[in-house]
Design a protein around this nucleic acid. Structure first.
Lengths: 334, 334
DNA sequence: TTGAAAGCGCTAACAG
DNA sequence: CTGTTAGCGCTTTCAA
């Protein structure tokens, strides 16, 4: 029985030598080229199999630049927002024959930088959700096509823009229409802390000012980006602004946490507290009461990003900016 | 302004030439080696940056086998089961400095084969959920470390085993304890159709036989692996076995669909119909009524798989089989 | 501290 | 149909 040495992998030359042919012939067999005798091909293939030969992707990559590797950087696979975007990215990438390497950051700046560095070194293009300016900068200047899906901010980097302005406007208008004035906002802590120019918080504040709502910045409460975070934020809201009648949440996860907490505290939703989310997660339809939200087509977001990469790759210039518009979906939480 | 030709990427030789040094010196600068004059290093680094030089990962890979690429094959990112496993895999992989390429198959055999082929060609190791025997075979004989997470079946491939036998037993016993005898099973259609030796269905049947439950194979209904699938299956169950008092579902998604449909039909859950799921998704806690389920530690599943790969890589031999045991979590659906 | 030579494993292009 | 030659872009010797 032919045992291979454990460490040194089998190369094309090994196969060639043992088959008594040139390495070129082995190459032809492996790559199923027509110009080869079917018999020798079979023989070589069998031998290669037997030896456990696998062509080195590096050596191949050097001579043929065919498979494209796309880096995808997201915050957290457990936040259902990201799997949906990922679905869009993976499907689009698969259609193009690209492979996708996924990195998660937990929204932590150090991990964002690490992911950016890894992608820069190992991928040919990148689609990312990123906060850290250094990480963004690094990718933007790395020379590889790069599309930011930063859910709102629009630096001088190509990306798919989500129309948060329109979304917040629609959500707030909906609440006001329902008679609410004392509307609080539960913001994502990460955005809150970095003081990033987050459109959702800004738009909330600006809407409140324009419409002379009786609220100020103290009505914006930071929440961990999770169901538990939303619940905790609701507790704080009850302590700090017990007279709030409605909540506009950074996203569905936070909204759901707040809703559940409110219900658990025997508050009636929407009568005593109305809640609006943002994202349109499937989750929102399943809970009780079902969540009113601004629905984003997340799969489309992902596939559009890949399309932009493809355009970037083909033309060298970003295509015209694409916008995804959130749709207000009214359910029973308002 | 120095413009690079659009197509031909900048190489280390380009940088060397323009810097007036040997390519070796550039290499030293890029890789931050000590044996280089700090001044020249800075100069080279600046120039490299300016030229947009990025070391080719292929050329690097040829001479240093450092970054390890792990292929992860899952069925569907949108099924919340998989993001959790993925989380475990990504975290463990990150800890080891590995990068992860993700493939999804939608449980379709052709896509499973394609994913297996892609991984074989492009990755150094693989963790996968796979049904198709060819795909499994291909990966198993590919020569790369391979761990199957097939959620139950145990071919002669290393993997983390989920103790489905124990899980089904616990779930069925729980229902019987609650007084149920006419218990139906909502099986995953993919398993059902392929007639794969799926432990859940088999164990259900065997349990029913042993305990002389008044059910037979017609009480196993196929369902699409989704909430809608569970709902549709419940409709069929109502038509075919209206006297069923309990449902044991293939997984939480199907269980949740069945539960919601039952509630929508004004059946009381658990009084008129008790439901047990399998997986322990977060989702199950959020719906009304909260779902009784067999909870699997999915993140652990993922991290254990990576550990097995690491062991395989280090020793060449699979470690002793690892088992993840589902825990019965009783909530209000039973 | 720097450079020259050699080679990683593979395929494209050209001979035969 | 098969073999030879060249070279992909990089790092690792080894010399200077």
């Amino acid at each position: 029985m032919t045992k291979t040495h454990h460490r040194r992998p089998v190369t094309i030359d090994d196969v060639a030598r043992l088959a008594g042919v040139s390495r070129q012939t082995v190459s032809r067999a492996i790559n199923d080229k027509p110009e080869i005798d079917p018999q020798t091909r079979d023989r070589i293939l069998r031998l290669a199999q037997e030896l456990g030969y696998r062509p080195s992707r590096f050596a191949r990559g050097m001579v043929r630049r065919d498979v494209l590797t796309l880096g995808l950087i997201i915050a957290d696979v457990l936040n259902p927002f990201f799997p949906e975007v990922t679905k869009g990215v993976l499907d689009a990438a698969e259609g193009l024959g690209w492979q996708v390497v996924v990195h998660t950051t937990g929204s932590r700046h150090d991990k964002e930088r690490a992911a950016a560095a890894a992608v820069t070194a190992q991928a040919d293009a990148c689609v990312a959700f990123l906060f850290d300016p250094d990480a963004i900068q690094r990718l933007a200047t790395s020379g590889i096509p790069f599309v930011l899906l930063d859910k709102g901010r629009t630096p001088s980097v190509p990306g798919v823009r989500i129309d948060f302005e329109g979304g917040v406007l629609a959500g707030m208008a909906h609440l006001v229409e329902r008679g609410h004035r004392r509307i609080a906002m539960l913001d994502d802590r990460d955005h809150y802390v970095t003081g990033a120019a987050d459109t959702r918080r800004d738009m909330y504040l600006s809407y409140a000012r324009t419409h002379r709502l009786p609220v100020d910045e103290s009505w914006v409460l930071p929440a961990d980006n999770s169901i538990e975070g939303g619940a905790a934020a609701l507790d704080r809201l009850r302590a700090e602004h017990p007279d709030a009648t409605a909540v506009f949440a950074y996203n569905d996860l936070i909204a759901i946490g707040a809703t559940r907490r409110a219900v658990a505290l025997d508050m009636s939703v929407p009568d005593e507290l109305a809640v609006v989310g943002f994202d349109g997660l499937m989750l929102g339809e399943l809970i009780d009461p079902p969540l009113t939200t601004l629905h984003i087509d997340k799969r489309r977001l992902g596939s559009l990003a890949v399309e932009q990469i493809a355009a970037l790759l083909a033309t060298g210039h970003p295509v015209q900016e694409t916008v995804v518009v959130p749709q207000l979906v009214v359910r029973s939480s308002t």
